[in-house]
């Protein structure tokens, strides 16, 4: 295949600012960022609590979480699909084939990553800070806000890992979103569709745009955390 055609397709997509294409990009970002955000709101405190708390079964939970980081997206998608289908337990909500369904599926994919990496980061930080924090009266769960704040740069990396998994993922959003044009079609499902239509340059062009977006977000996050980390030492 002509490499030039791929770049040309990618270039035309970006320069053309086709509203359909922009809609796809916006939806992709919206679904993925919302999923990461929700996973962060749940996963950061939970991961930190898991780092500090000692209770029976903790090791088992950690092992399970680490294993869930490798959960195939299709399996997560299928589970959400069966849950949200009209014939499933949450059917009456009518959420199947909506962006909300895609967000739910991606939260399930991202959450284990956020929790597991947060636990690691907070555990390391706690072993460094423990004496001082306990000395000034912040013991146990009361130390969590300080630890989350001081671990912010390492935690940003954890969220980026989650973002990467969600934005690259196609199996789950395809199943629960249905790849409906203009409604649940994301970058990755559009790539799948164009591939099946045999328009490989367009598919790869879309891939190139997705890659550039991911690269941009990572670069911004990396730069911000580097500057911040330099400031915080």
């Amino acid at each position: 295949m002509d490499v030039g055609a791929i770049f040309q397709a990618a270039f035309a997509l970006v320069v053309g600012l086709d509203p359909g294409f922009l809609g796809i990009v916006f939806l992709s970002l919206r679904v993925t960022l919302t999923a990461v955000l929700i996973a962060a709101l749940i996963g950061l405190p939970l991961g930190a609590a898991l780092a500090l708390a000692r209770f029976p079964g903790r090791a088992a939970i950690i092992v399970c979480l680490n294993a869930l980081m490798g959960l195939p997206p299709v399996v997560a998608g299928l589970a959400v699909f069966l849950l949200l289908s009209r014939s499933g337990p949450l059917g009456p909500l009518g959420l199947l084939f909506t962006p909300t369904a895609m967000i739910i599926a991606q939260v399930i994919l991202v959450l284990p990553i956020v929790i597991a990496l947060t636990r690691q980061v907070i555990e390391d930080l706690w072993s460094e800070y423990r004496d001082h924090l306990r000395s000034v009266g912040l013991d146990g769960l009361r130390a969590i806000p300080t630890l989350l704040f001081d671990g912010r740069f390492a935690l940003a990396t954890a969220l980026l890992a989650g973002f990467g998994r969600a934005s690259a993922e196609v199996g789950a959003v395809l199943i629960v979103g249905g790849n409906i044009a203009g409604y649940t079609r994301t970058m990755t499902t559009a790539i799948t569709l164009e591939t099946s239509k045999g328009d490989l340059p367009l598919a790869l062009g879309l891939g190139l745009v997705l890659l550039s977006l991911t690269l941009m977000i990572n670069a911004i996050a990396f730069g911000a955390s580097r500057i911040g980390a330099r400031y915080a030492g």
Binding site: Y129, D131, V136, L138, D150, A232, G233
Partner: peptide, 18 residues
């Protein structure tokens, strides 16, 4: 044990915690 914050914020934090 230095928190990942400014000199001033390190003192502020301890006082707030107490």
């Amino acid at each position: 044990i230095m928190l990942r914050r400014s000199v001033e914020a390190n003192i502020t934090h301890a006082l707030a915690a107490a």
